[in-house]
Design a protein around this nucleic acid. Sequence first.
DNA 1: ACCTGAACACCGTTCAAGT
DNA 2: ACCTGAACACCGTTCAAGT
Lengths: 197, 197
Amino acid sequence: MSHRPFHHGNLRAVLLEEAEAVLRERGVDALSLRELARAAGVSHGAPRSHFIDRSALLDALAERGFLRLADEMRGAASRAPGDHALALGAATSAYLRFAVREPALLDLMFAAKTDGPSEAVRNAADRLFGTMTDIMGAGVEAGAYDARDVGRLTMLLSATVQGISALVTSRRITTSQGEALVDDAIRIFLAGVSAER
Amino acid sequence: MSHRPFHHGNLRAVLLEEAEAVLRERGVDALSLRELARAAGVSHGAPRSHFIDRSALLDALAERGFLRLADEMRGAASRAPGDHALALGAATSAYLRFAVREPALLDLMFAAKTDGPSEAVRNAADRLFGTMTDIMGAGVEAGAYDARDVGRLTMLLSATVQGISALVTSRRITTSQGEALVDDAIRIFLAGVSAER
DNA sequence: ACCTGAACACCGTTCAAGT
DNA sequence: ACCTGAACACCGTTCAAGT
C-alpha cells in the first residue's frame, strides 16, 4: 500500500518544514505554495487541504515560531536555576540568537496584519509572554524587585528585546552590539526600578 | 501640449503617494505595480522608468518613512524647547503615533531583508537615528545624564520605542498600553542611568 | 479525508517600439 | 527621457473529479 511512502498524513508537516527553510534562506517573498508543493512532490492544489490560503501558512509559521522561541527561552533560563540575573541574561540572549537565526520568521511573528493576529497566533504569542513572565517572576523570590513590578517589567523587557532584535535583523546594528545592548537594558531596568521606589 | 496633464515628470511622486495609501489601507501584500499603474492611468510598464522592480518601490517607501518619522519626532520635540523630559516624551509619543497610523510602513522600514538595507534606506535610517541622538543630547545640557551615556541611551531608547511599537502594531497590546509603556521606559531609563554611577 | 489537474484572473519582469 | 503594449513565466485560488 501507499506507493507514495513519504506523505501520508504528514504533508502538512513536510510543507511547514520546507517553508521554514525557504523563509530562512530566501525570505517571505520567496515563499510560494506552488513551489512548496513541487518540493514535496505533490500537485499544486494539495496544500489546500492543509492551509486554506497562503496567509494561513504564514500564520502557522508564526505560531510555531512563538512556541519554539518560548521553549528556547525557557530552556536557556532553566540552565541557570540558582542565579536569577544569569537566567535572565541567558533567556534574553536566546531571544536574540533566535532573531539572528530566523530573521524573516521573527518579522512574520510581529507583522502588522490588517485584521490582527489569528487566534492560534495570539495564543502562541501569549505562551511566549507567559514564559517571559515566569522567568521575570523568579526575580521576585530572588529579591531583585517587587512582585507588583513583574507585569510591566516583563512588558518592558519583551518590548526592548524585540526592538533590539529588530535593529539587528534589519542590519541597523551588529549582533554583538545587540548583545551588549541587551545586557545594558537589563542592568538599567533593574537599577531603574529599585531606584524608583 | 501634454494631453496627459497629470503625470509629466511626476509619475514617480504619484506612484509613491498611491502606494502609501494602499500600504496604509490594505498592507504590503496588496501592493502591486500593475495596480498602481492602473490607478495612475499609465500602462503597466510605466513604473519601470522610476522603479527597477517591486522591491525598489518598497525601498523608496521605507526611505520616505524614515525621513517623515525623523521630521515628526524633531517637530514634536521642538514644541517643548525648555523642558527636556517633556520634549523626550513628545518625541517618543510621536514615534508611537506614527506606528499606529502607518503600521505596514513601519514593518517595511524594519524588515529583515536578506541582503540588508539599500544605501538610500540606510541613510534615511541614519537620519532618524541622528535626530534621536540630537534629542537625547539636549538632556546633557539639562543635566539629566552624562554626555558619555548619550550614545547607548539613544540606542536603548530607539530599540525600546521600536519594540513597543511592534507590540502595538501586531496587536499584542493596545495603543494606550503602549503609551503608558513608553512613559515607563523613559522614567526607568533615566532613573537607571543615574542610579548606576 | 486527502490529493489531482484544469481553469481563471492576476502578477512581476523584459524589451522592442514609439514620442 | 519616459511611456506603450506584447510576451513570458509564475502565482494564488477555485473546484469538479478521483481514490
